[in-house]
Design a protein around this nucleic acid. Structure first.
Ligand code: ZN
Ligand code: ZN
Ligand code: ZN
Ligand code: ZN
Lengths: 133, 133
DNA sequence: TAAAACTATATAGTCACTATAAGGTCAATA
DNA sequence: TATTGACCTTATAGTGACTATATAGTTTTA
């Protein structure tokens, strides 16, 4: 199949496919005489793997790492699980940070109603004073 | 004061200060004969304002918008409050997304223990199969 | 006097794409 | 047959908010 069909079947842009190839995440496919890339079913699976990893917000470097592990099937999988543990910890700390942020924003928002002049806006006042960290 | 002292007093890098100046967030200060930037107390306040906004993850464009509002003190402040409401909504949706992500990651992680070979790793299996969205 | 610490500008790198430009290829239509 | 349109190619620049590097000039300290 050509790049457009691969793109449609996995749900990415053709540019993204070429980008992954340049980054070494997708192996360079064979070319037709006219230079067009020709992909196989294995490329579909490989690209779908990448997208599933990206949905989980693994970085391209981490995906590369996973791909290297796939090439060494008889080694212990601890490193893979650790990679996932790290990602979980990362996501959890992001959630915690955002919850703190939300509280700050809500509290700041509560310091004003909609019927003031800008010079009396509680939000702007809160941002201008050093009361925040 | 010179740029280094401003940087230390607000807790940013000198490069960041020059960057904000280029981006139009900090007014260009006077210069000494040797070309060194000289800042006043007003610059300290202005920079601290920017940093407080950045802590709340407002974009530089939004901060610019707030600065424009500060120049029109007698207009109603509704737009400022709306800007904050948008930011709150944005943060809340980020939290929701991350919570979904966390669940997916934890569930994937639960499909493997540490004592397997890579070819039998439940995590890698989960990523390779189409069972995920 | 020489070294350390500071300042200046300009330019490139980060991340994972996304957009744009400028052109080559192919099948179907007027 | 000419041309339209959909597809493909490469190369280059832009996104956001910095951060790093290179190169050079200035001030302060030892
Ligand atoms: Zn084995
Ligand atoms: Zn207000
Ligand atoms: Zn007034
Ligand atoms: Zn495992």
């Amino acid at each position: 199949m050509r790049i457009g069909q691969l793109a449609r079947s996995v749900g990415v842009d053709t540019q993204t496919i070429r980008f992954y190839e340049r980054e070494g995440l997708l192996p360079p496919p064979d070319r037709q005489d006219n230079g067009y890339r020709i992909y196989t079913e294995r490329h579909v699976e490989r690209l779908a793997f990448i997208r599933r990893c990206r949905i989980l917000e693994l970085s391209l470097a981490e995906i590369h790492e996973l791909q290297r592990y796939q090439g060494a099937p008889h080694q212990p999988c601890r490193a893979i699980n650790t990679l996932l543990d790290d990602q979980i910890a990362h996501v959890q700390s992001q959630i915690t940070d955002l919850q703190v942020l939300e509280k700050q924003l809500v509290s700041l928002r509560a310091s004003c109603n909609d019927d003031r002049e800008i010079e009396a806006c509680g939000v702007l006042e809160g941002l201008s004073e050093g009361s925040m960290q």
